[in-house]
Design a protein around this nucleic acid. Structure first.
Lengths: 195, 195
DNA sequence: AGGATTATTTAGTGATTGCTACATATGTAT
DNA sequence: ATACATATGTAGCAATCACTAAATAATCCT
């Protein structure tokens, strides 16, 4: 067992509460007071466990990605590229339309812009969004090798289009769009996808 | 002429500077210190002219919309719905890809989320984004009446799809996407549009 | 039992936030 | 000239920001 006095709060549970706050208010809008209140701990405990606000945010980002990893993997594991992207957009609509979650997407609204003190966080989010574009692109490249996409298809361009639709759906959801509306957007987007 | 001591700064010029700051940092991230420095005035002048930070932001929003009004009107005035949307997406790509502007779109990143003190601003932005969806929808309804869109076309759904792509492009642009990449996204989106 | 190590609570820190009181400056109306 | 009305610069307001010093509490190891 670890040395010293044991931690009195549950890390994962506290992280989930912090995630909820960041998701709802963004990096800049989430105050330490909000965070400690939601997590049920005092500032020194937060700093001992996570370093600082930015460290906590990065951990919350990891947690957020973990929560969505399974549905992304499931979607991209579909036999054809078309089906993979269709499932990806559908699961995005379901997740963004779920009113049990805060509205919108942490990867988008966590820090699209802001004061200089959140430049690093802004960069981190951009990098993670780009990583998800790369994930889609690789799936489409594979599809092209497997003859599943036409030879003249452009995996990079299509991947960016799909990501654009996903991020646009996140903006719609932040503005209160329903699951049905998001699913309709997803279905329309799929008509742009080579079959 | 107006009574009292005349204003020593140019309102429009000052508003443009404020717009630039809000555009780059968002409503929450823009401090009054940033704003007064950029506008070249002291806080009391700002408050006398604009009421408070939120009032200044709303004026900056008006100015932002004015700047984009012409290209929106031009695009939607195209003879066919297809061409109207194509032009709309193209001009969006050009505007968002113009490195002389701050990255991204004020309507999106101005306040997607944030602390409670910016709830009103968040609502205002949502309302204005919804208004632009309505603008597109009305153009598509007209197209349907004119036989320019198939009878089974869904103007509301298509309008929301187009808005979703535009807002997604704004997120890409905030992350540094180039004009070319945005134009490619726009072109791909158009393949989902009935011709 | 006693020392070492880590967590927690309390109570703050200096810096920055949006905003304003007050005195002064600059214009018009009479 | 005097009164009135509005704008400006100086200086600073209370509140909140992210963060921490210091004392105490709870565990392990010897």
């Amino acid at each position: 067992m670890a040395l010293g006095r044991p931690r009195a709060f549950d890390m994962e549970r506290a992280l989930d509460r912090a995630l909820e706050v960041f998701w709802r208010k963004g990096y800049e809008g989430a105050t330490l007071c909000d965070l400690t209140a939601a997590m049920g701990i005092n500032p020194p405990s937060l700093y001992a466990a996570f370093g600082n606000k930015e460290g906590l945010f990065r951990r919350a980002l990891d947690r957020y990605e973990t929560l969505h990893e399974a549905s992304w993997n499931d979607a991209l594991a579909a036999p054809t590229a078309y089906e993979a992207i269709a499932r990806l957009l559908e699961s995005t609509a379901i997740s963004l339309g779920d009113k049990r979650n805060p509205p919108g997407c942490l990867m988008v609204q966590g820090a699209l812009c802001g004061g200089e003190e959140c430049d690093a966080v802004k960069q981190e989010l951009t990098a993670r969004r780009d990583a998800s574009v790369a994930l889609i692109r690789e799936r489409l490249r594979r599809a092209k090798r497997e003859g599943d996409l036409p030879d003249d298809a452009d995996p990079a361009g299509l991947a960016r289009f799909v990501a654009t639709v996903i991020h646009g759906m996140a903006v719609q959801a932040a503005g209160g769009a329903s699951r049905k509306e998001l699913e309709r957007v997803a279905a329309t987007a799929m008509t742009a996808f080579p079959k």
